[in-house]
Amino acid sequence: MDNDKFISIIDNATEKFRGDITHLSRAIGMLAVGRRLGWRVTYLIYSRATVRKYEKLLYVSIQDVLPEKGDLAEKSLAGKALKKVDNFWKAVKGEIPGIRSTMTTQD
């Protein structure tokens, strides 16, 4: 997603938004970080319910606007763990322990 598309998504969501602005700002944060980590890592950082909630607030599907694997995916512990997973969606559901993580590393 290029910068113009990113700003367009944020502007559209902001114009339409009504309610507690902290919810929208968190959704924008997910989108911003997801640009560099990719949608697969994003699904392992956030719960599926949270991703769905934020997608509704942003009027997007993260699988449509984020890369599958971002250039910083392996900076995330979840991104590193993806290499060991045969079934991604089982990991997302929490059926494979030790994969979901919000932590990043220096390398």
Rank of each mutant, 00 (worst) to 15 (best):
R36H: 15
K56L: 05
Y59N: 15
E55N: 13
S47N: 11
S61M: 07
Y54T: 03
Y46G: 02
G38A: 07
L37C: 01
G34S: 10
K53F: 10
L31W: 04
Y43R: 14
V41A: 02
S47R: 13
T50Y: 13
K53A: 11
V65A: 11
R35T: 13
L66I: 09
V60G: 14
L37M: 12
I62Q: 05
T50W: 11
G38V: 01
R35H: 15
V60H: 13
R36V: 13
A49W: 07
I62P: 01
L57H: 00
R40F: 01
V51G: 11
P67C: 06
V60S: 13
L57K: 00
E68N: 06
V65M: 07
V65C: 08
V65L: 08
Y46P: 02
K53C: 08
R36I: 14
A32Q: 11
R40T: 00
L44I: 12
R36W: 12
Y54G: 05
K53P: 03
L57C: 00
L57G: 00
I62D: 04
Q63H: 07
E68H: 04
L66C: 05
Q63Y: 03
V65T: 04
L66G: 02
M30L: 14
Y43W: 13
K56P: 01
R40N: 03
Y54V: 03
R40D: 00
S61N: 14
L58H: 00
D64Y: 08
P67M: 08
Y54C: 02
L44G: 04
T50S: 15
V51L: 09
V51R: 06
Q63S: 04
I45D: 00
S47Y: 11
Y54A: 01
E68L: 02
R40G: 00
Y43I: 11
Y54Q: 10
W39D: 08
